[in-house]
Design a protein around this nucleic acid. Structure first.
Lengths: 138, 138
DNA sequence: TCACAAATGAAACGATGTTGCATTTAGCAA
DNA sequence: TTGCTAAATGCAACATCGTTTCATTTGTGA
C-alpha cells in the first residue's frame, strides 16, 4: 500500500477531511522514522498557518493518529501512532528514546514489558523516556 | 535538626546567599511532601517577584537542591532532591507519580530497579512517570 | 453541483520564560 | 560595627507558545 492510500485510510476511518495541512503533516511523520519536534514541523510546513498547525496536531492527537513522544523544556515531540501505541494509553513496552548525539527522538519497543508497582498505589499509566546513544551513532 | 538549620546547610554548602525567596521556596517544598507545580509555587510565594522566582528555581536546579519532577502541557512540577535523586541523573528506582484524583505529584522509590535495554543502543538515563490513584485516595 | 459542516486564516490575547540594566542586599573583612 | 563587593532582586521589555473568536473558504456526501 502506498503512502497516499495509507493517509486516505487514516483520515477516512476517523471521518476527518483530507486537507493539505493534514496530508503534509502525515507525510512528514511517515517519512521521518522518528518523533519530530514542533519547531521542525513548523519549519517543514511553513506554508501552513501556525494556528492551523496547532489545530491539526490537536485533532490528530485526539483521534489517536499521532501522539506526543516527549516534552522538553523547549519543544514537544510528535510521532505517528504505531501498533503498540493507541490513543488511550501507551503500552508499557513502548518507550521514547532521545539520542544525545543526533538528538533524534524515536519510539522503541521493548522485548520485556516493564512492570512498575508501588505498595498501596493503583497504577494506570506508565510513561518511560530514555536517553543515551542510538544504534546509528554508536 | 530543625527546618531552618537544614535550609541554612543546603544553601551554605553551595555558597548560595540566604535570601527570602530561597528560604520561602525551600520551606514550601519541605512542607509539602510532594512535587509542586509552578502555578502553586507562584501563588504561595506571591510576595516574590515572578522573575526572581524563575531565577531562584533555576539556581536551585543547577545546584542540585531541587529537580523537575514532571512536565505537563500546563505546568512544570518541582520537588526537593532526596537521597536517590542527584542533580546529575536520577536513579532508575526513582519515579514520579501523578494521582488522577488528588492531582498531586510525588516522588516514589521502587524496591526493584527498573532496567531497560534496547538492542544496539547505549542507554544513559531513564525517566519514568506513572499515573493512577495514590495511597491516600484509594 | 449544491448545501452545509468542518477547516482555515487573521487578529487579539494570556501565559510562560528570558534578558538587560539599575538598585538593593547578604556576607565577608577590616 | 561599618563598609565593600559580588550576588541577588525588581522592573521593563521582549520572544515564544498556545488558545479563542469570528469571518471566510473548502471538502464531501446527498
Amino acid at each position: 500500500m502506498n503512502q497516499e492510500t495509507k493517509i486516505n485510510q487514516l483520515l477516512k476511518k476517523r471521518k476527518l477531511k483530507k486537507t493539505d495541512a493534514r496530508v503534509e503533516l502525515l507525510e512528514l511523520l511517515m517519512n521521518y522514522q522518528t518523533a519530530i519536534p514542533f519547531s521542525i514541523i513548523q519549519k517543514e510546513l511553513s506554508s501552513t498557518d501556525r494556528i492551523t498547525l496547532y489545530r491539526t496536531l490537536k485533532t490528530l492527537l485526539n483521534k489517536g493518529v499521532i501522539h506526543k513522544a516527549l516534552y522538553n523544556e523547549k519543544d514537544t515531540y510528535y510521532a505517528l501512532c504505531g501498533n503498540s501505541c493507541s490513543n488511550i494509553s501507551h503500552a508499557h513496552n513502548h518507550i521514547h528514546f532521545k539520542c544525545n548525539k543526533c538528538m533524534q527522538v524515536s519510539c522503541q519497543d521493548l522485548e520485556k514489558e516493564i512492570y512498575v508497582s508501588i505498595e498501596g498505589f493503583k497504577i494506570d499509566q506508565i510513561n518511560i523516556t530514555a536517553s543515551g546513544i542510538c544504534q546509528q551513532c554508536i
